[in-house]
Structure formats: structure tokens, C-alpha cells
């Protein structure tokens, strides 16, 4: 294996490791759940992405086979990370409402006449427009 390729793969692994470490550190350091939520949705995407690139490069250079599973892993990661974050945020909003102490999250108004879909049901449409955005929580 060429030395520059080896160096590149090593660099990718180190960089991805650093980002995953920082993401975990963020989980430890940030004070509120909503702030902690930012750490895993960001820092780990690049961390895992770098590791996958390194894996592709390694198998291409060492075994001469082009592995495409890594591309799929990346695609699925990008699909699932926002959904997971969304679920956690919604669960958090529900819990905050249930607790209902003085420290309930102060959400901005929607400004559209109806509330946020976690708390309020979707407005009734006339039945003509069948498939309006579903607001299930």
C-alpha cells in the first residue's frame, strides 16, 4: 500500500475518532437535554462518515475490491439521525408539559393560528383536501 494512501486512511480514522470523542464530551458537558441533543446529531455524523470513508479506502487499497456498503451506511445514518433527534425532542416536550413546573420550556408562538403539533391537534379541514399534513405526536 502506498505510503500516502496509508497516511490518508490513518488521518481519516484519527479525525473521525476526534469528532466522536468531542460528541461524547458534549453529551457530558452541556447542561440541558435540548443542548445535549446537538452533540450526537452533528459531531458523530462526521465521525462515522470519516470512519466509513477510511474503510472504503482501506478495502480498495488492500483487497482491491470496491465496497459500497459504506455508502449505504452513510445514507441510512443521514436518514435516521434527524428522525431520532426529532423523536427525542418530542418526548422531551411531552415530559416538560407533564412536569409543568415553573421551568417548562418556553416555546415561541407558531404565529399561524394553531399550536405546535406535539401539543395541539391538527385543525379540522373541510374534508375536501384529504391529505393535509398529519400532525401526529
Amino acid at each position: 500500500m502506498a505510503i500516502w494512501l496509508e497516511a490518508l486512511i490513518a488521518l481519516l480514522i484519527v479525525v473521525s475518532g476526534v469528532f466522536i470523542l468531542v460528541g461524547s464530551l458534549g453529551l457530558l458537558k452541556l447542561p440541558t437535554l435540548m443542548m445535549r441533543l446537538h452533540a450526537p446529531t452533528k459531531a458523530t455524523t462526521l465521525g462515522v462518515g470519516g470512519a466509513l470513508l477510511a474503510s472504503m479506502g482501506f478495502f480498495w487499497a488492500v483487497e482491491g475490491t470496491i465496497s459500497v456498503h459504506e455508502l449505504l451506511v452513510t445514507a441510512f445514518l443521514f436518514l435516521t439521525a434527524p428522525v431520532t433527534a426529532h423523536f427525542i425532542a418530542k418526548a422531551h416536550l411531552h415530559l416538560e408539559r407533564k412536569r409543568d413546573g415553573g421551568e417548562r420550556e418556553r416555546l415561541p408562538q407558531t404565529g399561524t393560528g394553531s399550536g405546535w403539533s406535539t401539543y395541539d391537534p391538527a385543525p379540522q379541514t373541510g374534508g375536501e383536501e384529504g391529505d393535509s399534513a398529519p400532525g401526529e405526536g
Binding site: L37, H38, T45, G113, W116, S117, P123
Partner: peptide, 14 residues
Amino acid sequence: SLTPGTVSCDLSAD
């Protein structure tokens, strides 16, 4: 959700 320091959390009911 994937970009700088922002996570989308909820959609208004409408």
C-alpha cells in the same frame, strides 16, 4: 437537524 447547531423539533399543527 444535520447542519450548524440547529435541530428541528416540531411542526405547527397546520
